[in-house]
Design a protein around this nucleic acid. Structure first.
Lengths: 225, 225
DNA sequence: CGCCTATTTGACGCAAGTCAAGGGAGGTGG
DNA sequence: CCACCTCCCTTGACTTGCGTCAAATAGGCG
C-alpha cells in the first residue's frame, strides 16, 4: 500500500472503539455500517451454531481489516475481542467517498479481502486433510508468524491469548484432544506454551510436523500508527 | 453488476479456452496472467498435497471468476475442468486498462472475491463442525442451488458431474464413507442420485439434515452470454 | 465381449469424541 | 493473610465415527 493511500485511509477514520477481552465488536446477523480496522490487540471471527457449538473462522492482528467487504450485507460471523482491543471505524459514506477519490485504496482493500480468503483457504486444507497433530502445529506456526509480523511478538516469545477451548473451536476438534496434542508437541521438544506465552523451541521441526509453507501469508495493509 | 460494466467486461476479453473433462486449466504454483471467467461447464479448484491426497477448495459454475485476485501472485491451487468447459481470459494489461476506465468493474470483481470467500467460509464451518452426514447434505444443497442459479439445472433434476471420490476430496472424508452417507440419504428418501444426475426428493428434509441456510450464496457477477 | 472405472459392501482398527474427576493458578472478599 | 471461587488445564476410561483394506458388483464404452 502506498504512503498516500495510507494517509487517506487514516484520514477517513470516523471513530475508534475500545473493547475488553471477550467483548463483542459486531454481532452475527447485523449489517455492518462501514468497515472496521483493528489497531491494537487480537480479535476473532466466530460462527455461532445452533447446537451451542462454534467455529472460529479467523484471527485478526493489528493492521487487519475485520470482515472486509465491498458492500454492506448482514454479517455471517460474530466479531469478538480476544485481548483488549481498539478498532478504527470508517463509516459507509466515508468509505464510499474514500473509494471514489482514491481508487487504489479500493484495490488495497480488495487485496486484503483476497489475503484473508487465502488464509481461510489454508485453514480449510488443514481442517479437511490433516490430522489433529499437524493441524495444531500448523495453527501455531501461522499464529506465531502473524503475531511477529504485526509487532505483537518478539523473536524470543509470543503472546498466546487463546485457551485450549478456543484452539479446539478453531481447529474443529475437542479441547481434550487439543490438550493431548499439545502434550505431544511439548514432549517432542518442539515448543513451550504456558501462561499465555508461546515459545517455539524447534522451529524447523515444528514446520515439518505442520507441513507449513508461509508463502500464503502476504503483507497486511499496514495502516500504521 | 450494471449492464455497462458487463459490456465493458465482455469487451476486455482477450481469449477463450476450451477444456476437456479433467483437463488442467491453471497449474498450482504458476502465476496467472490475468483473470479467468468460466463461460460453460463446471470447474474446480484443488490443492494437491505432498502425500498424494488432495482437497477440493471450490467448485465453479458458469459466470464464476476462477481464483479472482486483484494482483498477480503464484496460485495456491490447481484449476481443473470437471465437465467440458470454456473459459474466457482477460489478460493482465487488459484488466488494468479495464479497471482504470471502469472503477465499478473493480468493485464487482472485489464483490466476487468476497462472495467466494463467503462460500469457502461455509465450507470451513461445515468441515470443521459437522459430521459426515450433515456435511454431505450441505454440500448437495449448495451444489443444487448454484447449478440452478447458473442455468445448469432445471427444477426437475440437476446434473451431478462429481464422483464419490471427488465428493470425499471436497468434504475431507473418505470415499467409502461418502458412499455410506449417500446410502443413508437415499434410504431416508431425501434424494436420488445416479448416473450423474441428482434429484432432490424431500427438499425441506434435506435442508434440515444439512442445517442449510442459503443466504450466503449471493449473486454471481453474471457475465451473460 | 472385455476392459476400465465407479459404486457397493463387509470386517476390522484407530484417531478422536465424550464423560468425569482432580489439580493449579489467579482473583476476590472477609 | 487465608479461604474460597472460578477458570483452565490435565488425566484416565470408555465409546464411536470414520478410515483402511479388500473384494465383489455394476455400468459405460470401444
Amino acid at each position: 500500500m502506498e504512503a498516500a493511500d495510507r494517509i487517506a485511509l487514516r484520514g477517513a477514520i470516523t471513530g475508534v472503539g475500545h473493547f475488553a477481552p471477550g467483548e463483542c465488536i459486531h454481532e452475527q446477523g447485523d449489517t455492518p455500517q462501514g468497515i472496521l480496522i483493528l489497531y491494537e490487540g487480537v480479535a476473532r471471527a466466530v460462527r455461532i451454531l445452533g447446537d451451542g457449538g462454534q467455529q472460529i473462522l479467523a484471527l485478526f492482528v493489528p493492521g487487519d481489516v475485520l470482515d472486509c467487504q465491498p458492500v454492506a450485507a448482514p454479517s455471517a460471523v460474530r466479531l469478538c475481542a480476544v485481548t483488549v482491543a481498539s478498532v478504527a471505524k470508517i463509516s459507509r459514506p466515508a468509505l464510499d467517498e474514500l473509494l471514489r477519490k482514491y481508487p487504489s485504496v479500493g484495490h488495497a482493500l480488495w487485496r486484503e479481502t483476497a489475503r484473508h480468503a487465502a488464509i481461510q483457504q489454508e485453514w480449510l486444507v488443514s481442517v479437511g486433510r490433516q490430522n489433529a497433530y499437524a493441524r495444531l502445529a500448523h495453527f501455531i506456526c501461522e499464529i506465531s508468524l502473524r503475531f511477529r509480523a504485526s509487532g505483537l511478538a518478539d523473536a524470543e516469545s509470543c503472546p498466546f491469548p487463546l485457551t485450549q477451548c478456543d484452539i479446539a473451536d478453531a481447529l474443529g476438534i475437542s479441547s481434550v484432544h487439543v490438550n493431548r496434542m499439545l502434550q505431544r508437541l511439548r514432549g517432542e521438544r518442539l515448543l513451550a506454551l504456558s501462561r499465555g506465552s508461546l515459545h517455539i523451541i524447534d522451529h524447523d521441526g515444528l514446520y515439518r510436523a505442520a507441513g507449513f509453507d508461509p508463502s500464503y501469508l502476504g503483507d497486511s495493509i499496514n495502516v500504521g500508527e
